[in-house]
Design a protein around this nucleic acid. Structure first.
Length: 270
DNA sequence: AAGAATACCAACCGCATTCAA
DNA sequence: CTTGAATGCGGTTGGTATTCT
């Protein structure tokens, strides 16, 4: 609707932040917090727009930011979460403590997309998933899908809200006015899968047998050897909710539920 | 050694949403 | 209810570093 004023028009600085600017912003936020992003530039004397300050803080200066390379577990988690959530980088970031949406987005575009293309992502899991998906796909193909009646050429898959519509809250079942819409629809407002915030710490601490602690730092420094981490955290779900032995089984299950029921149910905490 | 190509990532842009007046 | 400011988010860009030829 209305855009925030552009930095250039306001005579504000753009481009890379200097260490001085960083320090000013850090000092300001430590002192006053970050309730209002318009305030720091004015009150701290920064020649930056609030938007830029917010971005700098969130993506770089926040004390809980974890720098450095992504571990294999994190990469697998991103792949799995992306499968569920689509390009909702902030939602994915919320499940990876210390990582930002921007960082995850960058990793996705620079590493993971390629890795998936080459079928190198978590070899065991990838093979299992592709098998699952092939089976599920061939099994589901002949079936009638309430919301896909006129979309025979579309691949059946979970659809992210972005792919669906910009307005998730207004989707309805069987909207005949939009034959091209490939999204599952529901009469009631959609509760998109919300993963329990405690998931990571729980799973990482219990599932990985102490190899990785709850902030992904390997005990003893560095990432755990891959041979000690046969599956990503999301792939060892059986004790959690009992369907199948890994995340992909679970995803297949909910994928089937989505497509058969024609609506998005409330998901359990993965 | 030098230039080209590629990879990486911080930061920007613009749209959507939320909320207060 | 409408309007506009503030914020959040995802897509994209551009500068720098690294690798390749």
């Amino acid at each position: 609707m209305v855009r925030a004023p552009c930095c250039e028009k306001m005579g504000l600085k753009k481009g890379p932040w200097t260490s001085e600017e960083d320090q000013i912003l850090i000092n300001y936020i430590q002192q006053y917090g970050h309730g209002n992003w318009r305030a720091p530039p004015k009150q701290a004397g920064l020649l930056r727009c609030g938007k830029s300050c917010r971005l700098r803080w969130i993506n770089y200066l926040r004390p809980d930011i974890k720098r450095g390379n992504f571990s294999r577990e994190e990469e697998d988690a991103i792949i799995n979460l992306h499968e569920i959530l689509g390009n909702r980088w902030s939602a994915i970031a919320a499940k990876l403590p210390g990582r930002t949406d921007n960082e995850i987005k960058n990793v996705w575009h620079t590493h993971l997309k390629k890795r998936l293309k080459q079928h190198e992502a978590t070899p065991v899991a990838t093979k299992r998933r592709s098998k699952h998906y092939q089976e599920a796909k061939s099994e589901l193909e002949p079936m009638d899908f309430p919301s896909h009646e006129n979309s025979g050429s579309h691949e059946h898959r979970p659809v992210s809200p972005q792919e669906c519509s910009s307005d998730m809250s207004t989707v309805t079942i069987g909207d005949d006015n939009n034959d091209n819409d490939t999204c599952p629809k529901a009469e009631s407002p959609v509760n998109f899968p919300e993963v329990d915030e405690d998931f990571w710490s729980e799973v990482l601490s219990t599932e990985s047998s102490g190899v990785v602690n709850d902030d992904f730092s390997a005990v003893g420094g560095g990432d755990p050897p891959l041979d000690q981490v046969p599956f990503s955290p999301l792939m060892t779900m059986e004790p959690v909710h009992g369907y199948g032995s890994n995340m992909h089984d679970s995803m297949d299950f909910w994928f089937n539920v989505f497509t058969r029921a024609g609506e998005i149910p409330e998901l359990p905490d993965f």
